[in-house]
């Protein structure tokens, strides 16, 4: 029953010149100086322009791509329009359409990422240098929001594990903490203390190293638009969407469990783990089912799957844990 999920017709979403590139690795000639210096042919070039074509391969992801299939569910990727106009990104406002409306003002270049904490290699790297060693791949993942709606999204990025290994975390690195940019001048939502800015998220190191955990730079074969978390965001497909921190500027290896924004805001409602779990309701609503955005009227609701359908890949991470307590 492990059928591939149907792919959206590429002509609908990707300009042809991009589409012809989609299975091509970038050649070394295209790589940045930094990338060439690292001696990697398969280097990621991420243009600054939001929505610009991205070169990536799906070859590396063939095995992973099959994972998005869930038995008995029709999982057609959502449209670009749906994915980019229905966002929770409180840095730009609390309305679902606020990010699409206001994120354009965010300058994503120049951008740099700081890596620090319990690792042998630390420092501040310009984004181009930070990304250059990685070959991009596409992964179509289910996306389940804690508000009980869901989508299917074709991300472009690379596994977080490959990134983390490059910085050689020490044995004391038990967790990885992430931080979003704090720039109220371009992120109007940060001018109000609705959450504790900057946004913070974190993963246990084994969760972070899981092959499904993904660093995202693109969507539908294009550079990630600002409202979706450009230039760099996290996707942890078996967790609720708010774990997928956007516009990352800092990655810290820590020994202790880091504080995370939503669990600080409402500890009884949002936990550190935030694994998708139909059996553990949110205090104010059920998580047993979800509405898949774009499903036809009268058939929107579908059952929520344990670990968002990725139980085979991740349930071993939580063996023996009381998931009602560590929600």
């Amino acid at each position: 029953m492990a059928a591939r999920i149907p792919r959206i017709a590429p002509s609908e979403i990707t300009p042809p010149e991009v589409y012809f590139n989609r299975r091509a690795f970038l050649t070394g000639a295209l790589a940045t100086g930094a990338g060439a210096a690292l001696g990697r042919a398969a280097a990621a070039i991420v243009p600054a322009q939001s929505g610009a074509p991205l070169a990536y391969t799906t070859d590396a992801a063939e095995s992973v791509e099959a994972l998005v299939h869930a038995p008995g569910q029709n999982e057609k990727p959502n449209t670009w329009e749906q994915i980019t106009h229905y966002n929770n990104y409180y840095e730009f406002g609390t309305g679902k359409s606020d990010p699409a409306e206001y994120a354009g003002q965010l300058q994503t270049r120049p951008w740099s990422v700081t890596v620090d904490g319990e690792a042998e290699v630390t420092g501040n790297l310009p984004l181009e240098e930070f990304l250059s060693p990685y070959a991009l791949e596409e992964r179509i993942y289910r996306f389940r929001c804690v508000e009980a709606w869901s989508m299917v999204i074709p991300w472009v990025g690379f596994p977080l594990a490959t990134l983390l290994k490059r910085f050689k975390p020490t044995s004391r690195a038990k967790y990885v903490a992430f931080q979003t940019l704090y720039r109220p001048s371009q992120m109007p939502g940060q001018r109000r203390d609705i959450l504790q800015w900057p946004y913070r998220e974190g993963l246990r190191i084994d969760e972070a190293m899981n092959p499904l955990t993904f660093m995202v730079v693109g969507l539908y074969g294009r550079v990630l638009p600002n409202q979706s978390g450009a230039p760099l965001r996290l996707i942890v497909p078996w967790k609720y969407g708010f774990k997928g921190i956007k516009a990352i500027v800092r990655i810290t290896f820590t020994e202790d469990q880091p504080a995370t924004t939503w669990s600080q805001a409402a500890p009884a409602e949002y936990g550190f783990y935030a694994n998708v779990n139909p059996n553990v309701p949110h205090p104010r609503w059920s998580q047993a089912t979800e509405r898949r955005i774009g499903n036809p009227f009268f058939h929107e609701r579908q059952p929520t799957l344990m670990f968002n359908g990725y139980a085979d890949e991740v349930s071993h991470l939580y063996k023996g844990m009381d998931l009602h307590r560590y929600f």
Binding site: P281, R284, W285, S286, T289, R291, F297, F298, H299, E300, R301
Partner: peptide
């Protein structure tokens, strides 16, 4: 009709369990 797809069991559960 549209949110709960006329699933009356869910409607009743919601009314009872969700304050």
């Amino acid at each position: 009709v549209l949110d709960l797809d006329l699933n009356w069991r869910m409607v009743v559960a919601d009314i009872i369990k969700r304050p």
